[in-house]
Design a protein around this nucleic acid. Structure first.
Length: 920
RNA sequence: GGGCGCGUAGCUCAGUGGUAGAGCACACCCUUCACACGGGUGGGGUCGUAGGUUCAAACCCUACCGCGCCCACCA
C-alpha cells in the first residue's frame, strides 16, 4: 500500500549545506514525525505487526544498554512500517517498585527525613509527584535516539487501567490455585526490609571463616563437634544432625545437647543432609535461618510456626520464642552478634578451631546487603505449573528464540523453577488484593466490598504488601493492549511478532511474560524472542556507575549524531556476543553519514533529483544496468539479514554498497555522463537515463538505510520535492534483475582500473601523469570494453592508448610510443631493447611507456614476485586436481571451480613469464 | 557441581568444510572541480594447543590450556 500523501508537508527542495550537522536536523525531524502521527499512520486494512518495548524505569535515565535495545527495535519497526504494515511499537514506563521507592527515600534522607515519617498515602503521593517531575526524562531521551514508537498510546504500569489488569490477574490466579499464601523462609533484604525473589539474590564469594564448636551432651557424657560459617545463628539452633549411616555418631542419635550459650536442650537427629565428609560430620540445625536447615527441621517434624526466630526485620537480634537468648546479646546487629557469640564460646572453651574459608554469600541485587533467610508469611506463585506450557512453547517452535543457544537456558530454568515469592513489603507498587478478617483469614477479591462479602460481612483490612514489579510487567504484551477487555487492539496485536530484550532479564521478565501470556491469552506473547548482549566498555569491562566507565549515549549523540550511534550499535550487534563499544567506531560511522551527505550534494549539484518510480527505471547503459543489479543484490542481502535478525549483516551490506560501490565506483563512473559538456549531450538519451538511474539508486539507498539512520536519510530525502516523508515510504521492490553482462563488463573495467593503479604505483609512476600504454594480449571483447570506457579509464587510471613505434638505431631497435584514440592489439615488442614497464592484469599484458626511468632490476623483481604468487596458487590447484580422490569425491561445483581457477592462474603465470622474458 | 559462550591481522569482530575477511589502527602517495569526517596504494594472520574424522578443517569430533557469564543449599 502506498503511504498517505501529506498536503502541507514542508518539503520544498533546498540546497544542502556543505557540512552535515546532525544536531540541526534530528530534533526537527523527530518533532515532525511525531506531530504528524507518522509513527503509526492509520492503516486499518494493513497487516498488523507488533513489538513492545521493555518498559524502562519511569524515573530512570537512558543508558547505553537502552540505546542498543531501542535501536534494535526501532530498526525492525521502521522497516515493517515501510513494508506497509500497521506497525505498532508499544511504549511505556515501569513503576519499578524497589528502585523507585529507593530513589524517593534517598531524597527524603537528604532532607533528614524518612519514609516512616509519613503515612503510606503521603509517601505514595510523594512518589507520584517525583514521577511527574522526572518521569518525562527517560521518554525524552528515547526520542533522541529516534525511537519511532506509538506515543499516542503510552502506558505506565501503574495506570488505573493497568492496575485493574494486575488486580484481575492476581484474583484470577488465586481462583485457579496458582497463587497461595505460605509461611516459609524467604530471602529477606534487611536494608529495604522486604522479601525478594530468588532472582534478586546475587551469590558472591566472600572471604569468611569456618568455626568448629563443641556442643556438650546434656547428660555430660561428652560433646559433639559442629562446624559453621555463621556462628551467630546458633542462638536459634533447634537440633544437631548427623548422617544416619555415620558409625561415629549412631549411638548419639536421639540424645540431647545442652546448647553452650542458651542452655537450650536440643536433640541429635539423623538426616541425610549431614555430610560425613564435611567438618566433623555433625551439623547444627537452625531451621529459622537457613534454607537447608528449614527442610531438615520440617523433616524432623518441626512446624514452621514453631521454628525459632532470632532476628527482627533489620536483622538485629531479638529474643527467641523460648526466651533463652542471654539479654546481653539482644539488640545486636548480625555482625556484632557474631563477635559476641564467638567471644563467649571462646571464654567457655567451646571454640575448637577457626579456619579461613571462602563462603558463597547471598546479596540483595539492589541493596547490596547480605540477604537473611527469614521466616515470614508471603504470597507465592506456583511457577512450576505455569512453566510447563512456556517450556513447551519453545520446544514446539511457537516461540523462536534467537540466538538458539538460549533455548537450553530457557529449558533449564523452567524445568527447575521454584515458587515465586511475589509479595513485597514496600509502599510503592500494586497493592495485593487480599483482605483479612480480625482472626487472620484471607480473602482475595477485586475490591474490599467483595472481600467483605466473602467474609460474611465481617470487617476486613487490606494486605499491606505490594506485588513484585515483575508480576505486573509480565502482563505487558497484552495489558498494554487493553486486556482483560477484548479490545480491537488486543485482537489485532496479540501475539506480538517479536520481543527484543537483553538476556539479563530473560528470567525476570521474558519467561514470566511467556508464562502469564500463555495462561491468560492462550498463546505465547511473541513469535520470536531476540536476546542481545550487554554493552561493555572498550576494554570489555561491564559498565557501572561506580567504576565510572559508563558511556553516556546522549553524549555520543551530541558528538556524533544519533544516526552514527545507532549504526554503530547495529553494526556491532552480532548474535550472542556482548558489545565492546569503542568510540572510534561511532566516529567512523559519523564519517559514513558525512560521506552519504556529500554524495547527495554531488548528485544535487549535477541536477539529479528525486526518482519518480519504485521500480528500477529502464536503462541501456551497462553502468546503469550494473548499478541497478547492485541495488537488487544489496536489497537481497539486506532482506536476508532482516529475516535472520542479523544486524551486523544489515549494516555491513548497506555500508559497503553505499561507500564501496555507489560512491567509489558508480558516482565516479558516471561523472562524465552527468557532466553537461555539449559532446555528451549530443549523444542523446544517456544523460537523462543516468540521471534517472542515479536518482533511483540513491533513493533506494535512502530507503534501505532509513531504518538504521533515520535522521540523515529523511533530511536528504526532503532535499527534493516529495509527496510524503521517507519514514512512510515504501520498502524497495526494484522489479529488476542483475544483468550478468553489465556486471561482467563493469567488473572487468573496475579490475582493469585497479590493476593499473596498483602496478603503476608499484613501478614508480607519478600519480598525476597520464601514461601512454599499449596492450599486447587479450580478446576482442576486452578491447571493446577498454575503448568504450577510454575516457573513464583515462580519468580514473590516468592512462591512455598508445601505439608502439620502432626506430632502428645503430645500437639496435628502440621502442617509443605514439598516442592514438583507440586501444588495439599491438605486436609484442622485441626483448632486446625493451625498457618499459609491463603490467599483467588478468588476461592482459599492458606496456606502460616511460621516459626511460625504469629500473630494470626492480621491474624484474616485481614481476618475479608476482609470478611466484601465481605459480604457487596455480600449483596448489594443480596438485588438488591431480588427486583422483578430489576429482572423484568432491562436489562437482568444487571441482569445476578449481579447474577454472587453475586455468586462470596458469594463464596469468604464463603472461608474467612472457613479460619477464622480454626483460631479458 | 551443572550449563552456556569465547580464544581468527596491533585493536574490535565477521566467517563455520573447498586457495583467510571487514572496520579501525599503521605505512607510502595525493591541496584530482561531492567529500581530508576525503581519495589512491600497500604491509600485516602457521585462525589458543595437541590429537582425530575427511579427498579437503579456521570451520566437524576429542582432550587440554586460557578467559568470561549463568544456574546450584555444601554447614
Amino acid at each position: 500500500m502506498l503511504p498517505h500523501p501529506l498536503a502541507n508537508a514542508p518539503l520544498a527542495m533546498s540546497e544542502l549545506p556543505k557540512t552535515f550537522d546532525p544536531k540541526a536536523i534530528e530534533e526537527r525531524w523527530y518533532a515532525h514525525w511525531e506531530s504528524r502521527g507518522l509513527f503509526r499512520p492509520e492503516r486499518p486494512d494493513a497487516r498488523p505487526w507488533t513489538i513492545v518495548m521493555p518498559p524502562p524505569n519511569v524515573t530512570g535515565s537512558l543508558h547505553i544498554g537502552h540505546a542498543l535495545d531501542i535501536t534494535l527495535q526501532d530498526v525492525l519497526t521502521r522497516r515493517e512500517r515501510m513494508l506497509g504494515k500497521d506497525a505498532l511499537w508499544v511504549v511505556g514506563t515501569d513503576h519499578a517498585g524497589i528502585a523507585t521507592q529507593m530513589v524517593v527515600e534517598r531524597q527524603l534522607n537528604e532532607r533528614q527525613q524518612q519514609r516512616t515519617d509519613f503515612t503510606r498515602e503521603e509517601f505514595v503521593d510523594k512518589v507520584w509527584a517525583w514521577k511527574g517531575e522526572s518521569g518525562g526524562s527517560i521518554t525524552r531521551q528515547l526520542r533522541r535516539i529516534g525511537a519511532s514508537c506509538d506515543w499516542a498510546h503510552e502506558r505506565f504500569t501503574m495506570d488505573e487501567r493497568y492496575q485493574r489488569a494486575v488486580t484481575y490477574t492476581f484474583v484470577e490466579m488465586h481462583k485457579r490455585g496458582l497463587i497461595y499464601r505460605d509461611k516459609r523462609l524467604v530471602n529477606w533484604d534487611p536494608k529495604f526490609q522486604t522479601a525478594i525473589s530468588d532472582l534478586e539474590v546475587e551469590t558472591r564469594d566472600v572471604q569468611g571463616r569456618f568455626w568448629t564448636l563443641s556442643y556438650p551432651l546434656a547428660d555430660n557424657s561428652g560433646a559433639i563437634q559442629v562446624a559453621t560459617t555463621r556462628p551467630e545463628t546458633m542462638l536459634a539452633d533447634m537440633a544437631v544432625a548427623v548422617h544416619p549411616e555415620d558409625e561415629r555418631y549412631r549411638a548419639l542419635i536421639g540424645k540431647q545437647i545442652k546448647h553452650p550459650i542458651t542452655g537450650r536442650l536440643i536433640p541429635i537427629i539423623a538426616d541425610e543432609h549431614a555430610d560425613p565428609e564435611l567438618g566433623s560430620g555433625a551439623v547444627k540445625i537452625t531451621p529459622g535461618h537457613d534454607f537447608n536447615d528449614f527442610e531438615v527441621g520440617k523433616r524432623a517434624g518441626i512446624k514452621p510456626a514453631d521454628m525459632l526466630n532470632m532476628f527482627d526485620a533489620r536483622a538485629f537480634v531479638v529474643q527467641t520464642q523460648d526466651g533463652l537468648i542471654p539479654p546481653k546479646l539482644l539488640g545486636l546487629s548480625r555482625e556484632d552478634a557474631r563477635k559476641a557469640v564467638v567471644a563467649k564460646l571462646e571464654d567457655e572453651g567451646a571454640l575448637i578451631r577457626v579456619e579461613d574459608r571462602v563462603v558463597p554469600t547471598p546479596f540483595g541485587d539492589r541493596s547490596g546487603v547480605t540477604i537473611e533467610p527469614w521466616l515470614t508469611d508471603q504470597w507465592y506463585v506456583d511457577a512450576a505449573r505455569l512453566a510447563l506450557p512456556a517450556l513447551q512453547a519453545v520446544k514446539k517452535g511457537d516461540i523462536r528464540i534467537v540466538p538458539e543457544t538460549w533455548k537450553k537456558t530457557w529449558y533449564n530454568w523452567l524445568e527447575n523453577i521454584q515458587p515465586w515469592c511475589v509479595s513485597r513489603q514496600l509502599w510503592w507498587g500494586h497493592r495485593i488484593p487480599a483482605w483479612y478478617t480480625e482472626d487472620g483469614q484471607a480473602f482475595v477479591a477485586e475490591s474490599e466490598e467483595e472481600a467483605r462479602a466473602q467474609a460474611g460481612g465481617k470487617p476486613v483490612h487490606q494486605d499491606e504488601d505490594v506485588l513484585d514489579t515483575w508480576f505486573s510487567s509480565a502482563l505487558w504484551p497484552f495489558a498494554t493492549l487493553g486486556w482483560p477487555e477484548e479490545t480491537d487492539d488486543l485482537k489485532r496485536h496479540y501475539p506480538n511478532d517479536v520481543l527484543i530484550s537483553g538476556f539479563d532479564i530473560l528470567f525476570f521478565w521474558d519467561a514470566r511474560m511467556a508464562m502469564q501470556g500463555i495462561e491468560f491469552m492462550g498463546e505465547a506473547p511473541w513469535k520470536t524472542l531476540y536476546l542481545h548482549g550487554l554493552v561493555r566498555d572498550a576494554q570489555g569491562a561491564k559498565m557501572s556507575k561506580s567504576k565510572g566507565n559508563t558511556v553516556d549515549p546522549l553524549g555520543l549523540i551530541d558528538k556524533y549524531g544519533a544516526d552514527a550511534l545507532r549504526f554503530t550499535l547495529a553494526a556491532m550487534e552480532s548474535q550472542g556476543r556482548d558489545i565492546k563499544l569503542d568510540e572510534k567506531r561511532v566516529e567512523g560511522y559519523r564519517n559514513f553519514a558525512t560521506k552519504l551527505w556529500n554524495a547527495a550534494r554531488f548528485l544535487q549539484m549535477n541536477g539529479v533529483g528525486a526518482s519518480d518510480s519504485i521500480a528500477a527505471p529502464a536503462a541501456e547503459l551497462p553502468v546503469n544496468r550494473w548499478i541497478i543489479g547492485e541495488v537488487v543484490e544489496t536489497l537481497a542481502k539486506l532482506n536476508a539479514a532482516f529475516d535472520e535478525l542479523r544486524y551486523d549483516e544489515m549494516a555491513d551490506a548497506i555500508y559497503h554498497f553505499v561507500w564501496g560501490t555507489f560512491c567509489d565506483w558508480y558516482v565516479e563512473l558516471v561523472k562524465g555522463e552527468l557532466s553537461t559538456s555539449p559532446t555528451r549531450q549530443g549523444e542523446g538519451g544517456g544523460d537523462d537515463e543516468t540521471k534517472r538511474v542515479a536518482a533511483w539508486a540513491f533513493d533506494q539507498i535512502l530507503v534501505m538505510l532509513h531504518p538504521l539512520m533515520p535522521f540523515i536519510t529523511e533530511e536528504l530525502w526532503s532535499a527534493n520535492q516529495r509527496p510524503y516523508e521517507l519514514i512512510v515510504a515504501q520498502w524497495p521492490e526494484p522489479q529488476a534483475q542483475v544483468d550478468p553482462h553489465a556486471k561482467a563488463e563493469m567488473t572487468q573495467l573496475i579490475g582493469f582500473i585497479e590493476g593499473i593503479r596498483s602496478q603503476r604505483l608499484e613501478t614508480g609512476f607519478k600519480p598525476i601523469d597520464v601514461i601512454p600504454i599499449s596492450v599486447t594480449s587479450g580478446a576482442d571483447y576486452q578491447f571493446s570494453v577498454l575503448n568504450r570506457y577510454e575516457a573513464i579509464i583515462r580519468r580514473m587510471a590516468r592512462v591512455r592508448p598508445a601505439k608502439i613505434t620502432i626506430s632502428n638505431t645503430e645500437h639496435g631497435s628502440v621502442w617509443s610510443s605514439e598516442l592514438v584514440d583507440q586501444y588495439e592489439l599491438v605486436e609484442k615488442p622485441d626483448r632486446t631493447s625493451f625498457v618499459t614497464a609491463q603490467f599483467v592484469i588478468g588476461d592482459l599484458i599492458v606496456i606502460a611507456f616511460t621516459q626511460g626511468f625504469i629500473d630494470l632490476d626492480a621491474e624484474r623483481d616485481r614481476l618475479t614476485k608476482a609470478l611466484a604468487v601465481a605459480e604457487k596458487e596455480g600449483d596448489a590447484l594443480a596438485a588438488r586436481l591431480a588427486n583422483p580422490n578430489f576429482t572423484e569425491r568432491a562436489k562437482p561445483e568444487a571441482v569445476e571451480k578449481a579447474r577454472a581457477d587453475h586455468e586462470a592462474k596458469a594463464a596469468e603465470a604464463e603472461r608474467l613469464r612472457a613479460a619477464l622474458d622480454r626483460l631479458g
